[in-house]
Amino acid sequence: MVTASPEVTYNSKIEGDITVTRADAAINWLRTNSMWPMPMGLACCAIELMATASSRFDIARFGAEVMRFSPRQSDCMIVAGTVTYKMAPVVRRIYDQMAAPKWVIAMGACASSGGMYRSYATLQGVDRIIPVDVYVSGCPPRPEALLDALMKLQSKVRSEPALKKQFTAA
């Protein structure tokens, strides 16, 4: 098996049946390679999100193919599309229902900034209501761009202290 992190590679010829690593490295290895997305598909970006999950682009290569439609079972909310002010409280509530640790990808111009919708009805960037880890440019972004965002998120997760208390109650 090829793993990106040299800290958790294991050579049984040298080390026998014992693996020594840091808890951070082991936990983050688990987190990065089985990130279950919450597909918050709100507009046309969701089509590209579906393409990313399908055979041609195959997000399963990065361990993120288990799209869960339950916030209780997901780690990473992919906000794919235009967030209206009517939908914004729902997005926030679903984010609150996700168990920590949790991350957010703002996919596309609308989720990142409101995009072309400078209007009374559109939330001007989903980062006004939830903390965003990775922004993806594009209208909509190509699936490769979303995969790149996922890889960037994985490298961010890999460098985080795994056991720190990430979220404090308000």
Partner: peptide, 29 residues
């Protein structure tokens, strides 16, 4: 009514209290 919109509260009182942001006039730039 301006295209950019006028400030208002969002629909969910719980969420409004928690995040403290509402509807803003969109930056037309």
């Amino acid at each position: 009514f301006p295209l950019a919109g006028l400030p208002a509260e969002m629909s969910d009182a719980d969420i409004n209290a928690e995040i403290g942001v509402g509807v803003i006039s969109a930056p037309m730039a």
